[in-house]
């Protein structure tokens, strides 16, 4: 059974679009990504909602901490991912199913790796 991965990235990471990545077979069909102006915009609620809507794993790809376009956006995102981890753990889920990744400007490669990492985590949790 294929797992469903949901990602959030900011305007400055993952320059290559999800459609092109899917077309090239680099990410699974069931992957979905939301592009935000800045990951600092993200609320814990958004992460939990993604699980509610059927995602098996959720990740956030923001700027490197020291090169965030909005200074502290990805720092905030990381904090919120931390809260989300606590909450899902309390719900009895593996806290690794939500994760924060820091990605260099415009880079798409690390995001693809993040998707793969989350797929394997979700599969491990599933079995």
């Amino acid at each position: 059974m294929s797992v469903k991965i949901k990602g959030f990235c900011c305007n400055y990471t993952a320059s290559v679009g999800v459609e092109a990545l899917k077309e090239a077979g680099l990410v699974p069909e069931d992957f979905d990504m939301v592009r935000l102006p800045c990951t600092g915009r993200l609320e814990v609620q958004d992460l939990l909602e993604a699980f509610e809507k059927g995602a098996d794993a959720v990740f956030v790809a923001g700027c490197m901490i020291d090169t965030c376009h909005n200074m502290s956006g990805s720092k905030r995102a990381a904090k919120r991912v931390g809260y989300a981890k606590k909450i899902i753990q309390e719900l009895g889920m593996d806290q690794g199913l939500v994760e924060m990744f820091f990605v260099g400007r415009g880079e798409t490669g690390p995001v693809v790796e993040a998707v793969r990492e989350m797929v394997s985590r979700a599969e491990a949790a599933d079995s």
């Binding site: 290559v16 990545l21 680099l26 798409t108």
Partner: peptide
Amino acid sequence: RVDEIDGRLGLT
């Protein structure tokens, strides 16, 4: 710019 993704090259 050119972006490398898993040994392939991504363009936007």
